[in-house]
Amino acid sequence: MNPESTAAAEPVVHIRADRGNWDFHNLVRAPIQELVQFKELIRNTVVRDIKVRYKRSVLGIAWTIIAPLMQMIVMWTVFTKAFQVSMPNYALYLFSGIITWNLFSQSSVAGGASILGAAGLITKIKLPRVLFPLTAVINNLVNFSFAFAALLLLMVVTRAPFHWTMLSVPFMLLPLILFCMGWAMLVSALSVFFRDLQYILEIALGALFYATPIFWDPTALPAKWHWVASVNPLAKYVFMMKASIYHGVLPNFSTYAIATFTGLAMFVIGWIVFQRLQRKFIYWI
C-alpha cells in the first residue's frame, strides 16, 4: 500500500460469511491481489529465512554448496568403488541429479512444514497465507542456484564437456518449480489437519529417491521397470535436467509438454486445495 493510494481511496474490507469460495474472485483474484500487496513481505521472508538458517553457523551460506557436494562425493565413492559403476563423468551425472532432487525434496519438507511453522503469525495477523509454502520453494531455488554454481565449478575441475544445451536449464526448471510450489501448497495445507503427513512424507521421499534416476541410468533400466520412470514425475524432471547438462541433448517435445502439464496441474491442484482450506487453518493450528 502506498500513501497515494490511501489518500485517494481508503481500503474497504468487506467480509461475508459465505460458502461461495469456489468462484473466480475468492479462488484466484483476491489471493493474487493480496500477494501483490504483500510483495515486500514475500521478499523479506525469503531473505529472513536465508539469514536465519546460517546466522549461527561458521561456514554460513557455503553450506548450500558443501552439503550437496558431500552428498555427491559419498555416492560417487559408493557407486564407483563398491559397485564398479563406470560411467564417464559420473560425478557430474550424480551432482546434476542430486541438486535437482534436492530442490524438490527440500521444497516439500520446508514447504510442507511452512504453515505449521508460521502459526504465530497466522493466528495473529492477517496476511496471505499462501506466501509461506511459496517462499519456501523460492528459498530452495536460491539454494539451487548456489549449487548450480558449484556444478559449473565441478565441470571445470573434472574437465567435463560444456554443451550448449545447458542454456536450456531455466526452461527445464520452470515445470519443476510449478510442481514444487503446487506440492508445497498441497502438503502444507493438508498437514495442518493431519500431522501424520510429515512422517509419511519423509518415508515417501526416501522411496521416491530410489525411483528417480539420480545415481542410476534410465536407459539401462530393465523393461519391466520402465513404468517407474513413466509414473514418477520426478524422474522426468531429473531426466530433462540431465539431458541438457550431462547428455547435451534437448528432451523431445512430448516429454517437455508432459512435464509442463504435470507441473501446471500440480500447481493448480495445490492452489485450489490451499485456498479452499486456508480459512480453517486457524481452528486447527
Binding site: V12, V13, H14, I15, R16, A17, I122, T123, I125, K126
Partner: peptide
C-alpha cells in the same frame, strides 16, 4: 481479518 466468520458480515 484473521478469523473468517461463520455467519454475518462486516465492513
Amino acid at each position: 481479518g484473521v478469523l473468517h466468520p461463520t455467519e454475518g458480515e462486516l465492513w
